[in-house]
Structure formats: structure tokens, C-alpha cells
Design a protein around this nucleic acid. Structure first.
Lengths: 136, 136
DNA sequence: CTACAAGCTAAAGTTTACTCTAGGTCAAGC
DNA sequence: GCTTGACCTAGAGTAAACTTTAGCTTGTAG
């Protein structure tokens, strides 16, 4: 039933050393081992890893993710802190999306700028455009 | 007319060492100096820095930004490459936004999950909900 | 004229998140 | 019985993007 580290590596597209690193950092507190020390990944560990990946993708550093994982193990007394953390993460992600939208606009302007220059065969076309505008 | 490194630092919210680092990496090829070696930032350098910041925010590494800056100095022969680069950047940013939207949804689910648990006073409420669903 | 804030350089140090290396164990197939 | 592939550990190494340090120069205000 449980998965080996190699299987999980393929399932979640994380390298085997990365999974071991996460374990060493304490991000997989429930992970079990065989008698001989081989890691056994259960569904709960896979779910844990998905949350880790989500928090990481939201821009959270590993050491903060560990704080969250630790709180999960402390039971209901940390519910409020964990709730607040996700609210804060939501705001962080929204801010990132907003910034990327602005970046996208700037890049789209540059796409237009270079398309125009390319059609004209020279970047000078933009100097011409500016002069023409001033002439009016 | 030109700005000092300290002024630019405040204007663009980049540290003075960061600006010197960018210069050292070749991201400011047009930057002039006074006779005694003090950097003079002209408007063109400020514009350059804004593009650098834009590309950086799009996820481009410094060494690739340098390649772009170098091409800018090579004239119209590199127009196509520069155009293609912005097209590619646009796609990269769109992909990032898309991924963040997904991450946001997962986080919003977690916000709901913890709000519900918080209201109930215990995370167990979610186990109850699952059992109830199964009962029907 | 002197203090001192702001500029300069080269080079070493920092942080984060892995990745790699060396050396060892173990279970299964031939 | 032995080889092979997948697992294990500890610890060193890497890459990116700065940041810090140490020591020096310069221009302006009092």
C-alpha cells in the first residue's frame, strides 16, 4: 500500500534527494520506515507533500513551512494560527498575481515595440514616431 | 541632471550595493562616470534599470538579462531575437499567473477548512463531515 | 582646513534550496 | 551465491543574487 521514495518522486515530480531533504527538514513528521530503515510514504504523507508544494509555490520559505507542519502536530490549540497563516498566504499570492499582471502589461508593450521595429526593419521607427507626435 | 547612486537607490527601491552589482554584471552599459570615478545615472540608465527589474520580476535570471542588454547594444541585427525573447517572457509570466491562480484556489480551500474547524472548535469536524456524507 | 557623509573597489560572506559524493545495506532475480 | 538496482546516511558542494567588510577617495558644509 505505501509508496517508495522513487515512486513518490515520479508521482509528484520531485527528485529523490529533495524528498529526503524535506524529510530531514522535518516536513514529513508522520513518515514511517520499514525495519531496515526504508521510507514508506502513505497517502497522508503524499497529502502533506502537496501542501508543502502549495505553500512553497506561494513563496513561503521552507523554514516557515516547517513551523506550519509543526503546528499541525500540536492539535486544535494552533487552529487559529494556521487559519491566519493561510489568510496571509492568500494575500501574498494575490499580491504576486497583481504584480505579475503589471509586469505582463509592460512586456506586452515591449512586444508591440519590437514588433513595430521589426516590421520597419529598424528600432529608429520609434524615434520617428515620437518626432511625428511632437510635430503636431 | 544625472542622478547619484544614492538617489537612484531611493527612486527605484534598490540597495546601493545592488546597483553597483548590476553595473559590475554589465546591466548598465551606458552608465557614465565623473572624472574621479563616481557613477552618473542618466534617464536612459533609469529606463534600463526599469527593464531589468521587469525582466527580473518575470523570473529571468541576471545572466539572461545581460544577454538581452548586450543585444540592445548590437543594433537592429538583434531585433528579432529581442522580440522573440519578450514573446517568450510573456508566455512565462502567463504561466506563472495561471499557476498562482491554482495555488490561490488550494489556499482558499484551506482557509475554508480552517475557518470551519475554528468555528467548530476542532479539526475533527472535517472527519464528521466526511462520515455524514458517507451515511447518505 | 577639517570633519564627515557619500562615493569607490576587491574580495569574502550569506542565504536558500537543493544536489552530489562516497561509502554502505538490502531484497530479488539469475 | 552473487550481482544489480534501489534504498540509506553524513557531509561537502553548488548556484543565484545579493550583502558585508575593509580600506581608500572625494566633495561640501561649518
Amino acid at each position: 500500500m505505501p509508496y517508495t521514495i522513487g515512486e513518490v518522486s515520479k508521482m509528484l515530480d520531485l527528485s529523490v534527494p529533495t524528498l529526503r531533504y524535506y524529510d530531514k527538514e522535518g516536513l514529513l513528521p508522520l513518515l514511517e520506515r520499514t525495519e531496515s530503515g526504508v521510507r514508506k510514504f502513505n497517502d497522508i504523507d503524499i497529502e502533506n507533500l502537496k501542501i508543502v508544494e502549495c505553500l512553497k509555490a506561494s513563496g513561503m520559505p521552507i523554514k516557515d513551512i516547517k513551523i506550519f507542519i509543526d503546528r499541525c502536530g500540536e492539535g486544535d490549540s494552533t487552529l487559529k494560527q494556521r487559519y491566519d497563516m493561510f489568510i496571509e498566504r492568500k494575500a501574498a499570492v494575490e499580491k504576486q498575481i497583481e504584480e505579475l499582471e503589471k509586469i505582463k502589461e509592460t512586456i506586452e508593450y515591449k512586444c508591440w515595440y519590437y514588433k513595430t521595429a521589426l516590421d520597419a526593419g529598424t528600432e529608429d521607427v520609434h524615434k520617428q514616431i515620437q518626432l511625428k507626435s511632437k510635430d503636431h
